[in-house]
Design a binder for these strands. Structure first.
Lengths: 230, 230
DNA sequence: GCAAAGCAAGAGCACTGCTCTCTATTTGAG
DNA sequence: CTCAAATAGAGAGCAGTGCTCTTGCTTTGC
């Protein structure tokens, strides 16, 4: 069962392709991702690249899955370093890690949370699981915190509840819909904050106050009912 | 000073180009925007299109500016139909209008608030003004509401304050930084909500609870300190 | 040892943005 | 009214893209 030299070479080339693709993504953006350019850089003729990657769309799917996991790893690592019962700090660490990863990998962030690549739609069965990792971290945190919905919060439909259960039959199922709604709002807000900073609406403006991300995270934590981590 | 037939024809062709470009944007996405396809549809040879549009990037800039104004018009119209002193309702109307426009023009929304078109960066002098219209509506609303910052809110740097004054020396200059921070947070959240719904993260999940956009808007309004519009 | 599988090369198709030259038409000034 | 200048369009062409097909060469596994 030892891998043959040929298999090793194949894996190596495959890794090279992904490495170059990630770099291209950073310099040229998702639409500038060119199979021919990758082949050229590898010293291959353009058609040979199709021995490794069946199509450009497939390469994009690979990059998306890889990025989702890199993103999930980074956020999970940061969040898991906090004391489990310090819910405010866990949220703060999560938010900071999200932004840190996005700033370090802007092209990948655009791939995951920006507008979809035109003409291409990622096959859900290969991306939703990895893509749900970070949202699930937040939902787990909310379940751990065992928050009570405020009395005057209007209840949400059970449809969303079921959708989340289908996604992961574990902890989130026990979340009251109101808490869940606030959690998803906080996550959307976080994505919006990071995207506006990265994609440069307002030029400096948002960049400025995103430097004060901690304040915004505190406000969102308060919105979710989490205790201040100070 | 009467426009010659030639000028009229030129304007007509120009309008046709933009119309077709918008349609292409909707069906193919921003990267699928093809000058050659537009020329073909107009019955022109591919090179003739450059009599009207100097380059593909320039066409994108035109589309962006047009979209920003269409967006600003829609939101402004909705917001201005509210009683001026009903601040909660003005926010609700603004948020609903933002989502309504985005759902009606998803490709344009992606152009404005999605990831930037790769290899292209919009010249700020031609887009930031139109792009600031909707954020300014919210800032004006906050200034009108004359909100007091909560005592325990940490102050933000004056740099952001100055940036906003430079942008529009009018009302926003009088906003306390804390109120401004909460307003920008609410706007970012709104963008995040709409983007997550449109770009299909979570598939149905977010779509579900974005149907309950009013609840989320109420939470954000509460976060800004606006009164409930009920 | 040899057939089978796998890798790479090369040519080629259809498409893109964009530039160049050339022609027919319209315009505006004398 | 005339005639040069400005303009719209046509056509060819360059460099790039994704992708397919056929053709060799090399390694693999029986």
């Amino acid at each position: 069962m030892a891998p043959t030299p040929r298999q090793l070479a194949h894996e190596q080339t495959m890794a090279d392709i992904l490495r170059i693709a990630h770099r291209q993504l950073g310099t040229e953006g998702s639409a500038g991702l060119s199979l021919r350019a990758i082949a050229r850089e590898l010293g291959l003729v353009s058609s040979a690249i199709y021995r490794y990657v069946p199509s450009r769309d497939e390469l994009l799917t690979l990059l998306i899955a890889e990025s989702y996991n890199s993103f999930g790893d980074a956020v999970q690592a940061a969040e898991s370093r906090c004391k489990r019962d310090d819910f405010g700090r866990r949220w703060l660490a999560l938010g900071r890690a999200v932004r840190r990863w996005a700033v370090a990998n802007p092209a990948e962030w655009a791939l995951l949370y920006g507008s979809p690549v035109p003409g291409y739609h990622a096959p859900p069965e290969r991306t939703t699981e990895a893509g749900s990792r970070v949202p699930l971290l937040l939902l787990t945190l909310l379940a751990d915190a065992d928050l009570k919905p405020s009395a005057d919060d209007p209840p949400m439909t059970a449809a969303l509840h079921r959708e989340l259960e289908r996604l992961r039959p574990g902890l989130p199922g026990e979340l009251p819909p109101e808490v869940l709604g606030r959690g998803l709002l906080a996550f959307s807000s976080l994505c919006g904050l990071v995207s506006l900073e990265l994609f440069g609406q307002f030029t400096n403006t948002v960049t400025q106050f995103a430097g004060h991300l901690d304040h915004q995270l505190a406000r969102l934590g308060e919105l979710m009912g989490l205790p201040e981590p100070y």
